[in-house]
Write a protein that binds this DNA or RNA. Structure first.
Lengths: 260, 260
DNA sequence: GCGTTCCGGTCCACTCAGTGGACCACAGCC
DNA sequence: GGCTGTGGTCCACTGAGTGGACCGGAACGC
């Protein structure tokens, strides 16, 4: 559904945002012309704004072109609730890693997707498709289902009525089946994924809830489906999520009203 | 020393940056008036830009006021070299944590300061003054000294000639003494800190170097000076740094020319 | 050699987005 | 009542931002 106001294309700020957001995770350096193409803005405009962004350390100019700058990284790290969430969760994620020696994720709900905000793992990590700061759909990941199961009805409906892409042969694309799974997640306190987002990966997750049972985040353990038995770790994962939640509660951090 | 160009106060972008950078780590929500005071900008201007930033998800409006938004966090996570650095370093930091059960840091050189880009630790962490995305001086931290010892002469001179604040009774504030320590760091491959940045904390760090011996980052282990013996872990810390460096080298990631 | 097509970067007259002083409504407080 | 703080809005003026046109160079094909 389109925004009521067509997002004011003409403001400097929205153009700036358009430039910043045109960067993708995979690119190492984006040239001026490429940025011009991606944003649809006049070349001179892109050039000028890019220069200003470089001066502000939000972009860095390299031989290969522009890339996102360290200033952006530092600012991003200052984003408050995420930071304290990470700091509180890390020791519990450590515990999980010690027990499993598999990849441990921390993710938050953002629209109809998960955003991964922390990830720890050893040298022999399963090749998970996740990146720090990256996104994945809710319906086909353990973290996603854990979050979705505790999310407001409105979001559940939106996800279930939206297109459910069959990412692997095992992806659950039947809304009814998915809804049943979500009920089970609430009942069990954990969510599972068996090769639903990527072949070869199995995963178990539990939600970190605030005092009002709203999901602040979710913690998961993922491993190769060949050797990793998710159900063996339900107690540990639940404990990690509950531990994180209780410390956050003690710090009186409630979920802030959804931004936007 | 003032900038040659007075940083173009009048551009929308620089005002925006001024607003974003006026946020501090400790504040949970900043009101409009407070922002106006911090930035020195007219209230109407701050208000308008803040609204735009909220629309762009760079700020979030709460009852308490504004705080940095999740969009900023996500963009920051996309900042490329830091992200791959973190991903490569994490397993080695894990190893260090398993051996020591103390707080493990990953930091990069930024001007004449360290910026901490990753931090893992258990439940009984030493009360380190570091935050993710936070900064500390180079001259009084183990990570700082490890970075400085391998930094270009120009930066070394700048730090040694600059004011060396005596942060604790043990802070090394004599430039000559510090220069000697830096030589030793290169020789030993590790840098030490004994309560130089904060009483009660001891720390050991090693630099992650690229193919040209430029410091990409440094890894440290910090613990309470009562029980933690930094010198017991020099081999492990060196190994973690060297391991990270060798994987980065294999990925052909060389240090990009300093931005700005 | 020459033409073509890409690139990053610059110029500068026009104009509309951004400005900011003045203003409003409200909530505490004395 | 008056005073002082807050968040938020209004709107006539103007200079910051715009962007089409333009460099100079590099890499191609012929």
């Amino acid at each position: 559904m389109p925004d009521t106001r067509p997002d004011d294309d003409r403001s400097v700020l929205s153009r700036t945002m358009r430039i910043l957001q045109s960067f993708r995770a995979e690119d190492r350096g984006v040239g001026l012309s490429e940025l011009t193409r991606r944003t649809g803005l006049p070349k001179a405009t892109v050039h000028r704004i890019a220069q200003d962004l470089v001066a502000a350390r939000m972009l860095a100019a390299t031989e290969r072109g522009y890339r996102l700058g360290r200033g952006l990284f530092e600012l991003g790290m200052l984003a408050a609730p995420e930071r304290s969430l990470i700091e509180v969760a890390i020791p519990f994620m450590q515990d999980l890693f010690l027990r499993t020696h598999e990849t441990v994720h921390l993710g938050i709900l953002e629209g109809t997707e998960v955003v991964y905000i922390s990830k720890i793992g050893g040298h022999r990590q399963a090749p998970t498709p996740t990146r720090l700061g990256g996104r994945m759909p809710l319906y086909c990941t353990a973290i996603g289902k854990a979050l979705l199961a505790h999310a407001p009805q409105q979001i559940v409906d939106e996800v279930l009525s939206g297109p459910l892409d069959r990412r692997t042969p095992r992806t659950v694309v039947a809304p009814g089946l998915l809804r049943g799974q979500l009920e089970q997640v609430v009942e069990l306190g954990v969510a599972y994924e068996y090769e639903e987002s990527m072949p070869g990966i199995a995963c178990i997750a539990a939600a970190v809830l605030d005092a009002n049972d709203r999901p602040l985040a979710a913690i998961s353990v993922a491993g190769p489906s060949t050797r990793f038995r998710p159900d063996k770790h339900s107690t540990s994962v639940r404990a990690a999520a509950a531990g994180t939640a209780s410390i956050l509660a003690r710090r009186r951090l409630t979920a802030l009203p959804d931004e936007n």
